[in-house]
Design a binder for these strands. Structure first.
Lengths: 236, 236
DNA sequence: CGAAGTGTTGAAGCAAATCAATTTTCGTGG
DNA sequence: CCACGAAAATTGATTTGCTTCAACACTTCG
């Protein structure tokens, strides 16, 4: 499952990179470190001096509200930037934590600046940011207009597609290292409701589960169920 | 209310622009056109050959779902880009329509490329995109974790702040050219519920309304009510 | 092996949806 | 300037998707 080139694999979809460009991206993944599950990578309000990339595992953007509620507003999968926006925005307006154990790489801001001087890499980096925004817009649609079962189905379709993008979603199944409580904090519903909705999807044979391993026996059926249209991921 | 320099005013917050930079931005606003209320500016799936900027009025990003529901996922206020992402993403994954009558300017892609060659303007443009994304993340929090009354309050606080940013939110009041049906499609609740929630906010003296004109007698009180923290707008 | 975290299930309650009707506002033309 | 029709706002009654509370089973791991 672990693949040091997922960063390169992802960004290759955002621009026509040369062999040299790819080499540069691969080199950035060399100095990686491991982070335990359920650990903050970047705290709310931080002004980190480098940019972090997820190389393996699942992480999330989240915010704790004054009343103690947690809102998870994005999943970060292998190949995803955590905080490419900090050099421009100045500080984090949310926190980032691992969901599973992760392997991450860090790139200092000076190096990022240098990479952004190269037109193809600049386009690839901004493509990644713009796709993240497109994903956020889809989450707004889900939260506003889809019922619990359709929200879960749509999220699973999205994760499968994003994992396949970096060569990790094999045989229409994947490891989803996310608890039902975390899914609830993502989709704005209670843990109990997530549990019942997952049971519904299993009953309808739209998904199968062995522990944390999710299988989708008929991807098209699940897509039809929640009107999933992968166009917003802008992969070609 | 109408001010040809709102584009310049907004982008000035994203980078330290020179007088020459500001001049360039002002010149782009010269060839503006008017668009009637409730008219599409850009259709879903389009691949426009220029970038549109709102100079006056309210517009929105929206998508019509297969079952006919409409989801409004962003408001575009004076100074906001409609589709700066299209040159990189290739096509629109949603549509953009006016809410009120708008004055808009268009910049062809070649000119955008030229502007992006200048480091300060490039930073300002990307700052605008990144703030838009930060706003989307806040909407995800609202939709997932706030009740109807807090969602409306938070949205009003945000709009006030964004209008003041371009010199348009005077005396803690502003014109909100948005129907209750549109607010419902924005916040994922029914028109009836929006109506009752607005009545609650009036009863609590958190807002006052004369037709479409919203007044906020005590901004801090409204902010406290919905835990509005303007940090995500990254204005300082 | 025991404790903590996670998943599952039932029952009761509530926020918001839906359905339906009425009033108010707005735009347009006579 | 008023009349008229359409759009928007308002209100009441009923229904429902989801929450909350509570209990219990399963899994994981030190």
């Amino acid at each position: 499952m672990s693949d040091g080139n997922c960063f390169e694999a992802k960004l290759s979809h955002g621009a026509l990179l040369t062999a040299a460009d790819r080499e540069v991206l691969r080199d950035l993944s060399v100095e990686a470190r491991e982070v335990d599950a359920h650990t903050d990578i970047i705290a709310d309000g931080d002004n980190p001096t480098n940019v972090t990339v997820i190389l393996d595992g699942f992480a999330c953007r989240y915010k704790i509200l004054p009343d103690g509620q947690r809102s998870i507003m994005a999943y970060l999968l292998p190949g995803d930037f955590c905080d490419l926006h900090v050099p421009i925005l100045g500080h984090m307006d949310h926190a980032i934590a691992t969901l599973s154990r992760c392997r991450v790489a860090t790139i200092d801001h000076a190096t990022v600046e240098h990479l952004l001087d190269q037109p193809r890499l600049r386009q690839a980096f901004w493509w990644a940011e713009l796709v993240d925004h497109a994903i956020s817009r889809q989450w707004i649609i889900s939260l506003g207009r889809r019922t619990g079962d359709k929200m879960v189905a749509h999220l699973l379709c999205e994760i499968l597609e994003r994992l396949k993008l970096v060569g990790m979603g094999q045989n229409d199944g994947f490891l989803l290292p996310v608890t039902q409580t975390e899914l609830g904090d993502t989709l704005g519903v209670s843990t109990v409701h997530i549990n019942r909705v997952m049971a519904q999807l299993r009953d309808k044979r739209l998904i199968a589960q062995q522990r944390r391993h999710v299988q989708i026996p008929d991807v098209q059926a699940l897509r039809n169920y929640c009107d999933f249209d992968p166009g917003y991921l802008h992969l070609g």
